[in-house]
């Protein structure tokens, strides 16, 4: 029961209805460009944005809701967590503001309220509260072109592959988000390369949290191991000192 969003770049007309609906649903304030924003339109007040590319290409950017999210794995207090329906949500009451989630996100999604004295992390939550009420996210609901649709992840993947098959040459033969970093819950179909949505490095198909897992699993062993090594070292050195002392004492009467 993993919900997902599929966005078809070829269908998007860039009307910004999804952005407007998102702002309205989550009571996000009016936004002006600030010095600390990246130029992708996302900000603490814009959880989704439309990136314009040449030849009438509009790409909707939003949190990818990874299957194994980096942000969730790094948050020291578990303020971010993956819900049963697949949405990655944020608990502002737990957060301590370390911004490790922003550092660890391979898509650079979480944004910070840099202008506030009591700042929080802000990002798309897949309209978690609407989904559990049985509604669909505000953005997919608002789309007049059905360019961005909501549904079960497995079904959306099927739809995506059917579209690629039925329209040969229209799409690049790839569903963005199917495999990258272990898969994401926000999928894209496109006729242009969408690699600019992440950092300019091949992310691979393995979930990123696995990279830390080995190091974190060896922590108890390092702790006990270091203790053992130190105790052993101490025992050997003390024994050696005692032995040399004894031999000194033995030798001394001869002198």
């Amino acid at each position: 029961m993993s919900k997902a969003i599929l966005t078809d770049i070829t269908k998007c007309i860039g009307c910004l209805e999804c952005v407007a609906a998102c702002k309205k649903t989550h009571n996000l304030e009016s936004d002006v460009p600030r010095v600390w924003q990246k130029n992708d339109g996302l900000s603490s007040e814009n959880w989704t944005s439309i990136i314009r590319k040449p030849d009438d290409h509009y790409i909707r950017k939003q949190c990818r809701h990874c299957i194994e999210p980096s942000c969730v794995s790094v948050c020291p207090v578990g303020a971010l967590h993956k819900t049963e329906i697949g949405a990655v949500v944020y608990d502002a009451d737990k957060c301590l503001g370390c911004r490790y989630c922003m550092m660890a996100c391979p898509y650079g999604i979480p944004r910070y309220e840099w202008d506030k004295a009591v700042p929080h992390v802000e990002k798309c939550i897949l309209c978690y509260d609407r989904i559990i009420k049985g509604e669909q996210p505000a953005c997919t609901d608002a789309c007049p072109q059905k360019a961005t649709i909501f549904g079960e992840r497995s079904e959306l993947l099927k739809i995506a592959h059917t579209r690629i098959k039925e329209n040969p040459g229209k799409y690049i033969d790839k569903v963005w988000g199917e495999h990258e970093v272990g898969g994401t819950s926000v999928l894209y179909l496109s006729d242009i390369n969408l690699d600019f949505l992440s950092y300019p490095v091949n992310l691979g198909d393995k979930p990123l949290p696995e990279k830390t897992a080995t190091a974190m699993e060896s922590v108890p062993f390092a702790f006990v191991g270091m203790g053992g090594v130190m105790l052993g070292l101490n025992w050997i050195i003390r024994r050696r000192m005692n032995l040399s002392k004894e031999s000194n004492e033995k030798e001394s009467p001869d002198e």
Binding site: V74, C75, P76, V77, G78, L96, C98, Y100, T212, M216
Partner: peptide
């Protein structure tokens, strides 16, 4: 909060 909310997967927690 690190004392009461645990996430042992996080190196920062450690």
């Amino acid at each position: 909060h690190m004392i009461i909310y645990w996430n042992p997967h996080s190196p920062l927690f450690e």
